[in-house]
Amino acid sequence: MNAFVISTSSFNIDNNPAIQHLLQKGMRAIPNPYRRKLTEDEIIGLLNDGAVGLIAGIEPLTERVFQSAKKLKVISRCGTGLDSVDLTAAKNHGITVLNTPEAPAQAVAELTLGLILASLRQIGQIDQSIRKGEWPRTQGRLLAAQTIGIIGMGYIGRRVARLCQAFEATVIAHDPYTNQILADVTLMPLEQLLATADIISLHMPYTPDTHHLLDAQAFAIMKPEAIVINAARGGLVDENALAQALKTGKLAAAALDVFEQEPYQGPLIESNQIILTSHIGSLARESRQRMEIEAAENLLQGLIKTGLIND
Rank of each mutant, 00 (worst) to 15 (best):
M1Q: 11
N2K: 15
S7R: 08
N16T: 13
G26A: 05
M27Y: 02
P33F: 10
Y34L: 15
E40K: 03
E40N: 07
E42D: 04
V52S: 03
V52Q: 09
I55D: 08
A56M: 10
I58Q: 10
E59W: 06
S68A: 15
A69D: 00
S76H: 06
C78R: 04
V85D: 01
G94L: 04
A103Y: 08
P104V: 10
A105D: 03
Q106M: 14
T112V: 12
L113I: 14
Q122F: 04
I123E: 08
I123S: 06
I130G: 10
G133S: 12
G133Y: 11
E134C: 03
W135Q: 04
G140P: 13
R141C: 11
L143H: 09
A145E: 15
A145Y: 08
I148F: 02
G149D: 07
I150W: 03
G152I: 04
Y155V: 09
I156Q: 01
G157I: 11
R158S: 06
A161G: 09
R162H: 06
C164R: 02
C164K: 00
A166W: 08
A169K: 10
V171E: 00
V171C: 02
A173K: 12
A173M: 12
A173I: 10
D175N: 11
I181W: 00
L190G: 05
L193P: 02
L194V: 09
A195R: 05
D198P: 01
I200H: 02
M204R: 05
M204H: 03
D209M: 13
H212P: 04
A216S: 14
M222R: 11
K223M: 00
E225S: 14
E225G: 05
I227T: 10
L236I: 01
E239L: 03
N240R: 07
A241E: 01
L242W: 00
L242Y: 01
K247M: 11
K250E: 03
A253L: 02
A255Q: 12
L256D: 06
L256H: 12
D257G: 05
Q261E: 14
Y264D: 07
L268D: 00
S271V: 10
S271L: 13
N272F: 06
Q273W: 04
Q273D: 14
S278A: 15
L283R: 14
A284N: 13
E286S: 09
E286D: 13
E286K: 14
S287Q: 08
R290A: 13
M291T: 09
M291Q: 07
E294N: 12
E294P: 10
L303E: 00
I304F: 04
K305G: 15
K305S: 14
I309R: 03
D311I: 11
